[in-house]
Design a protein around this nucleic acid. Structure first.
Length: 429
RNA sequence: GCCGUUGUAGCUUAGCUGGUAGAGCACUCGGCUGUUAACCGAGCGGUCGUCGGUUCGAAUCCGACCAGCGGCGCCA
């Protein structure tokens, strides 16, 4: 048994190989039939003819359809006319299944492909997407393992909101109603008191009725929390992490990026350090660029896009006004109206992919900020406990893995970066 | 939630001011000993999203509803 990628090699010329996979294309030309076979590693042309098969066998192979599954044994030869430079002349085979007409052919509509995502997964394009995603998830975890972090597993079913504004998914829980997690941050903060440096990649859920190309209701949320460090040190870790993930994708997925039409040279330029811009300075710059922004405005999607036109690497925006961020962010001691936080904006119009910063670690200060936000301390008793027993300075961040994958692959919508997107209007397949 | 837009064969679509619904792909059959999303010929395939209205006559005009997509707000 051989893989297709393995056999696309001069060492196999003249040798017999056994391949298995699915029919990617099939066409007949007179008494010859060309089958393009697909497996997880690539494509290869197979030749069926009466030279090496009986007329009945040749006829059976010629009658196969796209995505039929089979195993073939044949002889490899080099042939520049074949799609990947080599061809296998079949002399025996086994058909596992001959399909009826495969629903997906050429000229595909967006809605149809989403309805048939379970089949579209097999396409060359989506196979490339899945391979790049696999690298991104591995590289994220590797980066943190290599830097002394522990991976932890926070709960998914939770009883409190982490952030006031976002809408929660309610699920029944033995006669009670609980929520699906929309951020693991508070739980991650609990882990640093035993492990100091922790990360997780877990699903998060947002019941916001967002209808945009960058929102999912279920997404993969990568989060880290680090003891003893502040906002600037946190950003240093993040920029190296992004650089590492992008470099790993370039190293392992060059072919996939080509299939997706991604400009690899652009990605090669994604190297730390990334520029830091204070919110107040960004507002001044935006005004010079003619954007209708003033101090105190939040960055909308349009503003992010217009700002990022001026950069070809991700940019950290820091020191947001207190009013724009939630209660747990640490105010800047030098200017308490601003907080020690950062958003990382991706270039090329992709916008925010990371939100993070330093957390308030003083109990009184946290209680005061919660009171300002009209939050009931009882709901957060365990979060407040962390500030009662050996509290320490610490920072963390949350990264939308699907958004990162979406940007790295430069896909049209975030739905094209995740196999089974969940949105306000889509729960199938 | 608000605003916009689209819906014709399994898929992609043409059909303009109302007059018997047309093509390509897929599939089936036939032709071609080197095809590259092959090509050539034939066949199969449609309650024009749904319901209602206007009209002698509606895919086409009007209304409501349903579904998808896009934008905003919110966020990762």
């Amino acid at each position: 048994m051989h893989s297709i990628a393995e056999v696309l090699n001069k060492d196999y010329i003249g040798k017999d190989v056994t391949l298995h996979g699915w029919i990617y294309r099939i066409r007949t030309s007179g008494k010859l039939t060309f089958i393009i076979l697909r497996d997880s590693t690539g494509l290869i042309q197979l030749l069926s003819s009466t030279k090496s098969l009986t007329p009945e066998q040749h006829r059976e192979l010629s009658g196969l359809t796209v995505e039929s599954s089979l195993e073939v044994t044949g002889t490899v030869r080099e042939d520049t006319r074949a799609i990947t430079g080599f061809e296998v002349e079949i002399h025996s085979y086994r058909i596992f299944q001959r399909n009826e007409s495969f629903p997906i052919s050429r000229d595909l509509g967006e809605e149809f492909l989403l309805d048939n995502r379970h089949l579209w997964i097999r396409s060359r394009e989506f196979t490339a997407v899945l391979k790049v995603r696999s690298t991104i998830f591995k590289a994220f975890a590797d980066f943190y393992y290599n830097n002394g972090f522990y991976q932890v597993q926070p709960p998914i079913m939770v009883s409190t909101a982490t952030e006031g504004g976002s809408t929660l998914f309610k699920v029944p829980f033995f006669g009670e109603e609980v929520s699906l997690s929309q951020s693991s941050q508070f739980y991650l903060e609990t882990f640093i008191f035993s492990l100091e440096k922790v990360f997780t990649i877990s699903p998060s859920f947002r019941a916001e009725k967002s209808r945009t190309r960058r929102h999912l209701t279920e997404y993969w949320h990568a989060e880290a929390e680090v003891a003893w460090i502040g906002n600037e040190e946190m950003m240093k870790i993040e920029e190296r992490m992004i650089e590492y993930i992008v470099s790993e994708v370039i190293r392992h997925n060059e072919e996939d990026l080509k299939i997706l039409g991604r400009d690899i040279e652009f990605l090669r330029n994604i190297r730390a350090p990334f520029q830091r811009i204070r919110y107040a300075d960004l507002m001044k710059m935006a005004q010079e660029w003619g954007l209708p922004l003033k101090y105190g405005d939040d960055l909308g999607a349009d503003e992010e896009r217009e700002i990022m036109v001026h950069f070809d690497k991700p940019v950290f925006v820091t020191h947001f006004p207190k009013s724009l961020k939630t209660f747990y962010h640490m105010p800047d001691p030098e200017n308490p109206d601003e907080i020690l936080c950062h958003d990382l904006l991706a270039p090329e119009g992709y916008g925010e992919i990371i939100g993070g910063g330093e957390r308030i670690w003083d109990l009184k200060q946290l209680e005061q900020r919660m009171a300002e936000s009209n939050l009931d301390p009882k709901d957060y008793y365990w979060y407040l406990d962390l500030r009662k027993y050996g509290s320490i300075p610490h920072s963390g961040f949350g990264l939308g893995m699907d958004r990162l994958a979406w940007w790295i692959m430069k896909q049209e919508t975030i739905r094209d970066a995740i196999p089974y997107p969940r949105t306000i209007r889509r729960i199938k397949p």
